[in-house]
Design a binder for these strands. Sequence first.
DNA 1: TATGAATGAGGTTTCATTCAT
DNA 2: AATGAATGAAACCTCATTCAT
Lengths: 198, 198, 198, 198
Amino acid sequence: MAPLNEEQLNQTRDHRREQIKAAALEVFARKGILGTKMSIIAEVAGISNGLLYHYFKSKDELFTSLVQEAMDESQVAMRSLYGLSGTPIEKIKVLTEDILDESSSPYFMLIHQARTSEGVPEKAKQLLEQYSMKTFINLLLPLFKEGQQAGELVEGDPDELIACYLSVLSGLTVINSQGIKVYQIPKTDMVLRMIARS
Amino acid sequence: MAPLNEEQLNQTRDHRREQIKAAALEVFARKGILGTKMSIIAEVAGISNGLLYHYFKSKDELFTSLVQEAMDESQVAMRSLYGLSGTPIEKIKVLTEDILDESSSPYFMLIHQARTSEGVPEKAKQLLEQYSMKTFINLLLPLFKEGQQAGELVEGDPDELIACYLSVLSGLTVINSQGIKVYQIPKTDMVLRMIARS
Amino acid sequence: MAPLNEEQLNQTRDHRREQIKAAALEVFARKGILGTKMSIIAEVAGISNGLLYHYFKSKDELFTSLVQEAMDESQVAMRSLYGLSGTPIEKIKVLTEDILDESSSPYFMLIHQARTSEGVPEKAKQLLEQYSMKTFINLLLPLFKEGQQAGELVEGDPDELIACYLSVLSGLTVINSQGIKVYQIPKTDMVLRMIARS
Amino acid sequence: MAPLNEEQLNQTRDHRREQIKAAALEVFARKGILGTKMSIIAEVAGISNGLLYHYFKSKDELFTSLVQEAMDESQVAMRSLYGLSGTPIEKIKVLTEDILDESSSPYFMLIHQARTSEGVPEKAKQLLEQYSMKTFINLLLPLFKEGQQAGELVEGDPDELIACYLSVLSGLTVINSQGIKVYQIPKTDMVLRMIARS
DNA sequence: TATGAATGAGGTTTCATTCAT
DNA sequence: AATGAATGAAACCTCATTCAT
């Protein structure tokens, strides 16, 4: 008599949630919170306006949950570097390309939006403060230190080095998207030059 | 109390316009178009809400006129480099510090906002397309070429070099503001390393 | 497992209807029409949202059918007084206690809600007009007249007496519920004093 | 050059506020919070929807400020009794008529709505708890005690007496409005009988 | 010119009701 | 019969812009 078994339901629900999150991520990352209308997200997700609120309590909650996810994913990406083979600088290159790659960058762009835009919900701001920058710096610290010892990276306070490197990438990430086709440049090498010893 | 003569009136009028523009620049640069309310601009300018509309037809017009001005000022700043004494890389350093300096950066930030934000009026977008990037590149081209010939800058297509350099600065500009005190880093040197020959 | 026969099906159906009505009565009586969400009724009834609509076409219909039932029950309660032994004032006391008793009052509260709240469906209003007050007055008229003749009740137009008495009870009913524990007062005696001859 | 002097402005503003409050009081008192649409208040006040928000931050704030005012006014009405000449029961009769009089009752109705309806803002609830009932009881306590000593009122705990008396009036107040023309009865005398010694 | 009240279009959110399974 | 996802109308609220003075 039950219309759908529990597993099927959960599957559908999870699928919908992902579908909505994917749509929201795309739009939020590109347009920021204020530039994003819930109706657009609904449209992109191919669902009705009201259904959004079946899955997320509010625009703020949706945005915040994406920020949370973005932070997690970013950390995973950074942690995974240590599993790769290669010299420190090579690993950093992988990370850089990953961030600058449009297809994977929405998460980084979202974080950028959350950091630099107006209208970001308080909770998202707290997430950023808790996790961000310092956390990322700590994650990359061993890698950069190793790079410095190997003489691959420039000297100086590694914390500052990483912070600056991430800031530049964060900025470039946005420039890179937006449909702004400034120039298709091999940016990776240039960014690396900031931190690489010649 | 004799009524003001025409010149005085014009002076007052111009003064008001500048006053409004200064306020608007500050707010737009920090909060973007969508994050900026006309009422806030009025408040910062110390005038009433309605008076804004005596001087600027609309929010869009106000924003666009600021973008125009920002482009002009940026060009002036770049052109003025050629009047300085010093090697190319030294001149580029001056420009970089100028851009990264918070107090002078609102214009650069505004341009960044205009390039990367949602809700930018069509006319402002056209301005950006007309003038921007290519124009700036052309302005800096002699300087960068000179730098390459002098062996101070890395080799490669100078257009790409400049575009990338400006993109990074554009991104950093926003990071730099926003009260985001991520880290107080001597960014200038690091940014320069992207383009400087070791 | 043999399929259920028709009678069993009907029984199930009726049972469900009662289950829903009981839930709805409780919630409507406490929160009024506008304060009551269909989803809450479903939850209280322990069924799904959609199933409500298999048994009742709409919120309005559900509410209206409850009002109908409440009217009927109230009349039954009043009619049953005549079967009791005791003096008129004693019977009225029984009725009063019955109405003020929280556990039995939902029906009276519902009628109160229907009379005094916004958003009451037209059909429920018609029911109230058709049946209410005048009907109740007529039901109680013999009792009150008898009481007056016995010198137990104050004199005056018995219709007015009853109307006022019921109005007061109606008002108290709501005060009494709502979790408003203003004061635990032996209200019955005081209310009776309004109509009882000293 | 100033368009209107400050006094004129304040006058206009105050007038508007009162106009809005009057409209809101009327509608809230009759329909409760949930039954009242901001657009209706605007319509009744003869202004645009948006202007409401120029004067009151939200529906909740508007409602709450009215509740505050209603509490104040009620207290004033009760305090003023002590300035009247006459016996205690005569003063209580004045109060009763005042409350039951339709024209002055909106305030009492609003308080009733705030006490008994769903959707009442938290702040309004706090106001009710702070001030209500106990405060009113204390205000009337001397009067009722005096009445008891004079043998005009029935005996018993005066707190309970007052609480019950006010509850009945509160309930009647709503019945009385709503366009429910149940019966035009001389209710005052009947209500008084609840508390008056014969 | 200058003010701040006033308007109204448009965005967010809720919830009765319908639909697919 | 039963479920819970899905829809869409309608309410609240914001803010660019206009208006009366």
